[in-house]
């Protein structure tokens, strides 16, 4: 599809569904980024691990405010709002 949109998925409480959706959003060739801004690091389970691995394979930028999210680029909440300004759609989940 032409005219790729920039979409940010903000992971909050429902991590599994947020990651699954983020991976699905790559199917329309849009530029998807994931920000874990929730209270917890991504729970290590088979589904989340697979989705994170798949997102990395799709070159989806992954950011997290939790250092424990080793597969994500560490960031702080204070800089997230400015980063989000560049996106066409922001999807808190």
């Amino acid at each position: 599809m032409s005219d790729a949109k920039k979409i940010a998925v903000l992971v909050q409480e429902r991590q599994g569904e947020a990651l699954r959706m983020a991976l699905g959003l790559t199917l329309a060739d849009d530029k998807v980024s994931v920000f874990n801004i929730g209270m917890q690091p991504i729970e290590a389970n088979d589904e989340n691990n697979l989705n994170v691995e798949s997102l990395k394979m799709m070159d989806v930028p992954l950011y997290s405010v939790h250092e424990a999210d080793s597969e994500f680029e560490n960031t702080v909440m204070q800089v997230v709002p400015e980063k989000l300004l560049e996106f066409d759609h922001v999807v808190p989940y």
């Binding site: 949109k5 699954r20 959706m21 699905g24 959003l25 199917l27 060739d29 849009d30 999807v91 989940y93």
Partner: peptide, 18 residues
């Protein structure tokens, strides 16, 4: 459908709400 329909909706939509 599947998440493909969500991806298509987000791609085609001018604005998105949740």
């Amino acid at each position: 459908g599947s998440q493909f329909q969500n991806a298509t909706m987000m791609h085609e939509a001018d604005k998105v709400v949740v």
